[in-house]
Design a protein around this nucleic acid. Structure first.
Lengths: 164, 164
DNA sequence: TATTGTTATACTCTATAACTATA
DNA sequence: TATAGTTATAGAGTATAACAATA
């Protein structure tokens, strides 16, 4: 608590799930995997969002860009399934990316209900920039996790799969 | 895809981050700790929310009840710091819990700005019910994680701490 | 009838800033 | 001046349901 440039009502610095004030007892919570999963993800997400936010893109868009980049021509439905979101969630997301000029939508010629999604050149450029940030971010995580990375990822994957 | 009781527009069953359709390539995403952290947490949270939702309480409330139960008389600020949320986020949360009759707010006598939070009897009952669900949920996670639990938790804790 | 994507709508969670009342 | 909590407001993220167009 020694930071000068701080306006009156911001004494708490930043909400921080990881380090409760010492006096507070969190009880059983500390033994729950689910609880730690949540606060670790929260911290990781916020750290990443700080970077991508400066890039003018919302962190949730990253996965979408990534998938479109890897699967040129993918449809919105498949994209949604891949990143685990409903198609009605995909629509505004796609519109957003299109407005930013990062993707292109081409109507399918053989099935006129469908659209195919592609990265524009700007989208590709932007994606590689985002990937640099993602890699930097994940390098931090790698440092923390160290040699156990493979096992750690495996557990996370198992959790995601087992819990539907 | 063989489930009979399903209305026309719900063919996707449930948005599911864990298992992309086989044909879709997620690229580097699969190597990012942050990505797996997100989908594992997502799955865990949704599974838990399915249970607590049936109990008529929002999953985000659980941690708050837990902390209040363990720290009778705690103030809203400390509660917020403990669960990693801003005080302005705590206010409506507390009002909600109070409306449900689960907590009681007593104004502090020595500092009239402060309030002290306590579980009511109903709150205690409700909390133990929630804890049963949380334990059941975490038992599933325990099964998945198995013997590596200690190391796994340690890594999650380190992530949360290192990332501010 | 089923599927692709859109729209209308609504809910949860969250924060920032400005505020009141205390201290 | 600083702190505890409130309010006003906003925005991200998400989903369900009903819909139009097409298959």
């Amino acid at each position: 608590m020694s930071d000068a440039h701080r306006s009156s009502d911001r004494g708490q610095r930043r909400a921080k799930a990881a380090a409760p004030p010492a006096a507070v007892d969190i009880g059983d919570l500390g033994a729950y995997i689910g609880f730690h999963l949540r606060i670790a993800q929260d911290a990781s997400f916020r750290a990443f969002a700080r970077n991508t936010g400066q890039q003018g893109i919302k962190p949730g868009r990253f996965a979408a860009l990534m998938v479109i980049g890897r699967n040129p021509g993918i449809g919105q439905g498949a994209l949604g399934q891949t990143i685990g979101r409903d198609k009605s969630t995909i629509t505004p997301l796609i519109q957003d990316l299109q407005r930013l000029g990062l993707i292109e939508r081409r109507p399918s010629t053989d099935d006129r209900r469908r659209v195919h999604l592609y990265l524009t050149d700007a989208g590709k450029t932007h994606l590689s920039r985002l990937k640099r940030y993602a890699r930097a971010h994940d390098r931090k995580l790698d440092e923390i996790v160290g040699a156990e990375k493979a096992g750690f990822l495996e557990l996370l994957r198992k959790i995601a799969n087992a819990l539907d």
